[in-house]
């Protein structure tokens, strides 16, 4: 170990090629997401966050791959466990802390909280809690681009195996294929819809088999393997961009947290936690980095420190900001407030 560290310290040249050319960049987003969410959890436990905290622990490899290959002009519809993907897509950390801490200055201004946030003007759609609803919204956004004659764009919508069982998701998949929009759907099977295991969620052999029924091209990936996620999801994005039919990627992981931080997930049996899909993708990626000597331990520690500093800065900044106030709020739900106010 000491020898490895010394050797790496001497020369930062890589001993082996990374298993994917964006592996380290992706790993760094994962690290940032994990660090941020650990901080959010401790703020929640300390009573400093109202509502709930919903984290993506164990899903960072899939999520980062969702955000990383999108370019300016692409549409991203992240969901509840997509901190890594949101950051890779370009969401500033301060958006997250402002929303969780209820700053008046955040994108949601205290009107909505936690993971129910987005920047629709920057093409990061703001999810609603009703699962599956954002798939057709993404389709519509892509159609608008096509109407305007734009080229070379793609949309990516995230879902879980729980959300895949909704009517909205079914309608969204079907209409995406009917419209032949350049859409990638990344479905992360984290094996639990809140507390309900797979065997009470669906009865098909493999969720990816649904792809063909909708006219999608379907792929599976081990969601604990960062390189595989980058490869499979990156390729799906590339194919959609090139005009292939819509793409479905089904990733397998275990949710390494409760549904939210109020949930201790005691319903997950010990033997499930020993399954291969239960590996922690961040630890697996870190081990790859060390095994292949892609980074030395010192650099890794530095990255960790930097992530923590960024998170602390974003938390401290949001904590200093004013909260919304009921008597100063603009209680009009219409953008055309004059039209409504002149009558009501």
């Amino acid at each position: 170990m000491l020898q490895t560290a010394q050797r790496s310290a001497k020369s930062k040249t890589k001993k082996a090629a990374p298993p994917h050319d964006r592996f380290l960049e992706a790993f760094r987003w994962m690290l940032l997401a994990r660090t941020l969410e650990e901080k959010l959890v401790s703020l929640y436990r300390g009573g400093l966050i109202t509502g709930g905290v919903y984290i993506g622990k164990g899903q960072e490899a899939v999520s980062v791959a969702c955000g990383l290959f999108l370019q300016e002009g692409d549409i991203f519809a992240p969901l509840i466990r997509d901190q890594a993907g949101r950051s890779a897509f370009g969401e500033p950390l301060i958006d997250v802390t402002r929303t969780y801490l209820g700053s008046r200055l955040g994108p949601m201004r205290g009107r909505d909280g936690n993971i129910h946030r987005g920047h629709p003007r920057n093409n990061e759609l703001a999810m609603i809690s009703h699962l599956g609803a954002m798939v057709s919204v993404t389709v519509g956004a892509l159609m608008a681009k096509r109407f305007r004659g734009e080229k070379n764009f793609v949309g990516l919508a995230c879902i879980g195996e729980g959300g895949m069982q909704t009517g909205a998701f079914h309608e969204g998949m079907n209409i995406a294929a009917v419209e032949q929009v350049p859409l990638v759907i990344v479905a992360t099977n984290n094996h639990y819809a809140y507390s309900t295991p797979n065997d009470r969620e669906f009865a098909c052999h493999d969720l990816v088999d649904r792809a063909i029924g909708y006219g999608f091209e379907g792929y599976t990936v081990d969601g604990t393997d960062l390189a595989a996620c980058l490869d499979v999801i990156g390729s799906a994005v590339k194919r959609a961009r090139a005009g292939r039919p819509p793409q479905l990627v089904v990733a397998s992981v275990l949710r390494l947290s409760g549904h939210g931080e109020h949930d201790d997930a005691s319903y997950v049996p010990e033997e499930v936690k020993r399954e291969p899909f239960a590996r922690d993708c961040l630890k697996v990626a870190e081990q790859t980095i060390l095994d292949l000597e892609l980074l030395d331990a010192e650099t890794l520690a530095e990255w960790r420190k930097e992530a923590a500093a960024q998170v602390d800065e974003a938390v401290a900044a949001a904590q200093k900001e004013p909260a919304p106030e009921g008597d100063k709020e603009d209680w009009c739900a219409y953008s055309m407030r004059d039209l409504v106010n002149s009558v009501e």
């Binding site: 609803a133 057709s136 519509g140 608008a144 109407f147 309608e171 969204g172 419209e179």
Partner: peptide, 23 residues
């Protein structure tokens, strides 16, 4: 024309409207 998918029809319209269309 659309499929018989009222949820997705309106969802699609919402996405297009956010991107500047008037569905």
């Amino acid at each position: 024309n659309t499929p018989i998918s009222e949820d997705a029809i309106v969802g699609t319209a919402i996405g297009a409207a956010m991107q500047g269309m008037r569905p």
